[in-house]
């Protein structure tokens, strides 16, 4: 399954390395992380990682395959 996670603010290149499994794009005050998510556990892990990095998650949704 593919997901995108929208976080508030522009993430630095360094910080995006904390999500090596996801691609990212920066746009209008937000950063979108997107890519394949292995399973639910991975999904929750990504959310926890956002929290650990002090990121504010604005939106998360599954993408059509």
């Amino acid at each position: 399954m593919r997901y995108e996670i929208r976080v508030e603010g522009h993430m630095s290149e360094t910080l995006t390395r904390a999500f090596p499994e996801l691609d990212h794009v920066v746009m209008s005050g937000q950063t979108v992380l997107y890519g394949s998510v292995v399973d639910e556990a991975h999904l929750y892990g990504l959310l926890a990682r956002c929290q650990s990095l002090g990121l504010r998650v604005m939106e998360m949704r599954q993408l059509p395959e």
Binding site: V7, G9, M11, T14, L15, G54
Partner: peptide, 11 residues
Amino acid sequence: DRTTVADFLLA
């Protein structure tokens, strides 16, 4: 600035 807070400040 529009970067994420912790990221920017920590750097």
